[in-house]
Write a protein that binds this DNA or RNA. Sequence first.
DNA 1: CGAACTTTTGACAAGCATCAACACGTGTGG
DNA 2: CCACACGTGTTGATGCTTGTCAAAAGTTCG
Lengths: 258, 258
Amino acid sequence: MAPHAFVLEPVARKLSARRRLSFDEAKAVKLLPCKEASLDAGSYLVREGEKSHVCCALLSGFTYQHKSTGSGARQILAIQLRGDLIGLPNAMLECADHNVQALSRIKVALIPCQAVADLIVRHPAVGQALWAESLVDASLLREWILNVGQRDAKQRIAHLFCELALRQKAAGICSGSDYAWPMTQEQVADATGMTPVHVNRTLQRLRSDGLITLTASMIRIPDLEALEIAGDFSRGYLHQSSTEPAVEIDDIDRNLYL
Amino acid sequence: MAPHAFVLEPVARKLSARRRLSFDEAKAVKLLPCKEASLDAGSYLVREGEKSHVCCALLSGFTYQHKSTGSGARQILAIQLRGDLIGLPNAMLECADHNVQALSRIKVALIPCQAVADLIVRHPAVGQALWAESLVDASLLREWILNVGQRDAKQRIAHLFCELALRQKAAGICSGSDYAWPMTQEQVADATGMTPVHVNRTLQRLRSDGLITLTASMIRIPDLEALEIAGDFSRGYLHQSSTEPAVEIDDIDRNLYL
DNA sequence: CGAACTTTTGACAAGCATCAACACGTGTGG
DNA sequence: CCACACGTGTTGATGCTTGTCAAAAGTTCG
C-alpha cells in the first residue's frame, strides 16, 4: 500500500463530514491520482483571468483568495486551510475570477481536473459533497461581506480570529484556543477592509482587553466565547455539524490499511 | 401542450447559457413540476436558520439575500432576477445561512426539491450547469466583498448600477441603458455598507456628474461605459460568455411547441 | 385628507485614512 | 562580525470621508 494513499485523507475526511460517504466513495477520493508539491509563501496557485486546468488539495499551511480594484487596492476574500480544495471552481468556468496565493509555505496535492470530473460521474455522492462544500464556501463569503460591510474595526478582526479558530478546530489542526497565526497586519488589513495602521491600533485594544495574546506567528485566545461576543460571531454560517465525524472516518482508515 | 411548460423557460435559457445542454436536457428542465405563485414585496422566501424544503425559480421581479449583525445592522448580499433559482443551496444544507426576501412584487415557480434532485441524477449535465451557476453566484459575492471593502461611496453605488444593468441585459430584461429601479435608498445603503443619508448625497453627485438619471423606480444610464469607469467595474466576474446563446434556445422552443 | 414611508437637507461628531517617521527583528553580504 | 537593507510593527499628528441625529419636504396609498 503506497503511502500516497494517505495524502488525500484530510480531503476525504472533510467531504465525509459534509455528506455521508460510503466506504467505496471515501476510498475513491483518497485514491485520486495526485502529485505532491511544496510551495513558498507568496506563490500563485490561481491567477485572475487565466483558465486553470489544475486542481489541488491543500495539505498543510494556508492560502488566500484575493482580488484588486483598478486602483490597486487589494481585498482578501477567504482563507483556505488543510483539506480545502483549490481551483475546482475555476476549472469549471472559463477563467478564474480571483487570485489564490500561498499565505505561508504550503504543501499541496495536484490533481488532474479530469480525474475529479470522472470521480463525480462515477460517484454522484462525492459530487454532491463537493457541491455542498462549495455552498459552504459561499456562506463564508456572505459572512465576510457582512463583516466588512457592517461591523466596526474591533469586531471585524475578532470575527476573523474566531473564524480561523473554529475552522481549524473542525479540521483537527488546533484546539481552538491557540494556533499558528499566518497573516501579517497588512494582510489582516486587506482582509477586513482597513488600513494597516488602524489594524495595529485595533489589535492593541484587543490585547489590552485581554481577548487575545498575539505574538509573531502565534495567537492565543484565553476565552473564545468572549472573543466571539466581541466579534459578533455566531457559528451557524460555518455549517459545521455538531457531531464529530472524524472518528468514523478513522475507523474506515483502519479497516483499509491494517 | 400546457402553457405551464413555458414557465420555466427563463431558467432553461440561463442554464443553457452557462453550459451547453442537449434538447432533452433543456426540455427536462422546462418540464419540471412546479406551481406558480405571486408574492408581495417584502415576503420572505428563505429565513436564516430554517431548513427550507422549497426551491423556486424567480419568474419576474427581484429578490435579495441579506443577513444581519447581532446589533441589527442589515447587509444585503446579492440581488436575484428573472431566471435565478432561489433556495437551492439552502435545500442542500441543513439550514439556511441567510434570508431571501422579495424586493418588489414577484412571480415565482415553486419546485419540489426532490424533483430537482431527480433531475440532476437523470441529467448530470443539468447538475453541472446548476453547479456552475452557483459558482458564478460565488463570483458575484466575491466582487461584492471587493466593492464593500475597498471602493469609495461613489464607486460602490455606480458598481451596483452596472452589475444590475449588465445582468438584466444578459437575461434579456432590458437594453442595459434603462431599467426599472427596484431599491429604495435605504436598501442601497444596506447593499453598499453605507448610511441612507450618505447614499442620498452620493446619488446627487452621480446625478450632477451626468452619469445617471434616477427617478422614482426608474434609472437611465446615458453612458454605460462612463458609469463602468466611475464604478471601477469590469465585466469579467459576471462570467457572461460574449456569444449570445438566446437565439439557439428560441429555436429549440420553436421546434418543441409549434 | 391623514398616515406611513421615502427622500432631502443641515449641523455636528467620530471613526478611520493618510502621511511620515521611527523601532525592531532578520537575513545577507562585505 | 558588523553594516546594511528590508519587511514588519509601532507611534504621532492631521484631516477627510462617512456616520449620527434631527427635522422638513415630498410621495404613496388607504
